[in-house]
Write a protein that binds this DNA or RNA. Structure first.
Lengths: 109, 109
DNA sequence: GCGCGGTACTTCGCAATGCGCAATAGTGTG
DNA sequence: CACACTATTGCGCATTGCGAAGTACCGCGC
């Protein structure tokens, strides 16, 4: 089953959530999301989302040269990002409950 | 808060769910979805979704001339539609629980 | 009869966003 | 050296929800 369309609009919150736990860089965010259960998430989507959120002013960014490989571009939440996260989390919960209600209500007995 | 992106990929299931309860036509589907809590759903989206689902072979369709207004194009689930609904419902639940887990896990204390 | 509001559907084109793919580049392993 | 893994960027595509406009049919009040 394809979850691509379900991810729309949710990837933002998901990325903000893992960054709220601790600063991270693209490649690692992908791994953490997949470990959390979002196994089908594409790497290009995450990188794109990070850039978008940064451009929207929700994230800070700093490059950390690594001696174990290529450099890493770390991202972290700023005040705006935390506010966005709180709002999006609430929106998600309202929405998810609405959908649950709709699907439960009509489910065959 | 904008739920447009959240609707992506979910409108299908929502429409299938209300049609599973009983046959309906576009205009009424919109009303029923809004009453169920999806208040921001656009009418063009629903009409589009109905056409898409019909084209995909999940729906039956029959026109009922109405003496109380314009004709109504009724849609109903066929076997394929019910199978699709069952699958999508399960997919939604798995996905929603994954997201809930991710958001709970990282929520501020 | 005429305008108005509500019902009901279609078509058009746009905007947002997730993704595949290719390119670049550094590191360590066989 | 070829290869795999890490790490990022850019390009272009597909999907899909939506706004706007147009068509059309109905009953109601004036």
């Amino acid at each position: 089953m394809d979850t691509t369309q379900l991810l729309k609009g949710v990837l933002d919150v998901a990325v903000l959530a893992v960054l709220d736990e601790r600063d991270s860089y693209g490649y690692e965010v992908v791994r953490r999301l997949r470990e959390a259960g979002l196994e089908d998430v594409g790497d290009a989507s995450v990188y794109g989302t990070l850039r978008r959120l940064f451009k929207a002013g929700a994230l800070t960014s700093y490059v950390v040269p690594s001696e174990e490989g290529p450099h890493r571009k770390y991202y972290g939440l700023n005040a705006t990002g935390r506010t966005t996260l709180d709002g999006s989390r609430a929106t998600w919960r309202r929405f998810a409950r609405t959908m649950d209600g709709l699907l439960d209500h009509t489910e065959k007995r």
